[in-house]
């Protein structure tokens, strides 16, 4: 197994799928000559040429919709948003077209498009550039939403996303691009809708995804020093959700904390906790706690930003609270 960065894993996934299928192409701002704003597409222009690695003007609504149109007549576009913040400009195309065309056409159409890009807070980027919008997309039937946490998952999940015939929202973490991890040699896929246990434990279940897995694992290490064994579960795909994996863990630990970088109000964690209450109510020994970003636009000042986003100490404290310690 080779150790590579998150961005390299994504790069390999795209390159392998472009090699495999001539209908796959990459389009977005600065993906070509500039090698990607976060260098995820490094070398792809040189390898596949400007026909398949396409720099766009700054026109998110336009090129997102173009991807949908190309997909409905047989291509398999990967549309990169420089960051998911800018996908807000393209939401009409994603929500009204990508998600609904198959249904409205009575199954006549399929839209095999992947929208991917960086998400979440980085370092002091301010309110308009620090958003985690997965809850918005999870709300929409017709979309698949994936958010990998490790290089290995990122590669296998992106390959599955590209091969899937549905529109996929693929959320990457801006600060995790440099994270390293082992990735198997050779071809592998991580299926859509299948979660993963990132750490086993018996005392409390911590559910997280994307960058927050790393916060959860750090919290688990802190808890371990106090003799508390946390189980860390990564659903990996947020829609559809691997409910069984979550429930199996809760049945074992009877306690649950959900960590989410986005806002609390109508967050993904709200849906997950609802499903746990509905299906595992009798197994719970304490109310579920959610650790989210504070319910405010992201402030710029460093001290405020750090206080707003979820941190390992906050997660550890929540875990102890559900354990009544």
């Amino acid at each position: 197994m080779a150790e590579i960065t998150f961005r390299e894993a994504l790069n390999q996934a795209m390159a392998e799928e472009m090699e495999r299928d001539a209908n796959v192409f990459l389009m977005g701002e600065e993906v070509g000559y500039y090698q990607g704003a976060y260098k995820v597409s490094q070398g792809l222009l040189e390898r596949f040429g400007p026909k398949r690695v396409i720099d766009t003007p700054i026109a998110e609504l336009g090129f997102a919709g173009l991807g949908i149109g190309a997909a409905q007549v047989g291509l398999r576009p990967i549309i990169e948003f420089m960051t998911w913040n800018f996908s807000i400009l393209a939401m009409d195309q994603i929500v009204n077209n990508a998600a609904k065309l198959r249904y409205m056409s009575g199954g006549a159409l399929k839209i095999p498009v992947v929208f991917r890009g960086a998400s979440g807070a980085a370092h002091q980027l301010g309110a308009q550039h620090s958003q985690s919008l997965e809850a918005w997309y999870c709300n929409v039937p017709g979309l698949i939403v994936m958010a990998p946490s490790t290089p290995k998952d990122a590669k296998g999940m992106l390959k599955s996303a590209i091969r899937d015939d549905n529109p996929v929202i693929f959320i990457e973490s801006e600060v995790a691009y440099g994270y390293k991890g082992e990735v198997p040699e050779g071809e592998y896929l991580v299926p859509i809708g299948v979660g993963d246990v990132k750490r086993t434990g018996k005392d409390v279940t911590i559910i997280a995804w994307s960058k927050m897995i790393h916060v959860a694992l750090e919290a688990a290490n802190m808890l371990a020093q106090e003799g508390i064994e946390a189980e860390v579960i990564d659903p990996r795909t947020l829609r559809p959700l691997d409910e069984q994996l979550l429930l199996t863990s809760i049945e074992k630990t009877n306690r649950c904390v959900i960590v989410e970088e986005g806002w609390p109000y109508a967050g993904v964690g709200a849906e997950i906790s609802h499903r746990i209450y509905q299906n595992a109510f009798d197994h719970l020994d304490a109310p579920i706690l959610r650790v989210t970003s504070e319910d405010v636009p992201m402030p710029y000042a460093k001290n405020l930003e750090q206080a707003v986003i979820p941190s390992a100490p906050k997660v550890a404290a929540a875990a102890k609270k559900v354990l009544y310690i």
């Binding site: 002091q124 301010g126 309110a127 402030p299 710029y300 000042a301 460093k302 001290n303 405020l304």
Partner: peptide, 13 residues
């Protein structure tokens, strides 16, 4: 600098 004395009280940058 992200300080309270800033034009946007440190919230904008």
């Amino acid at each position: 600098f992200g300080k309270a004395g800033g034009v946007s009280k440190g919230k904008g940058g």
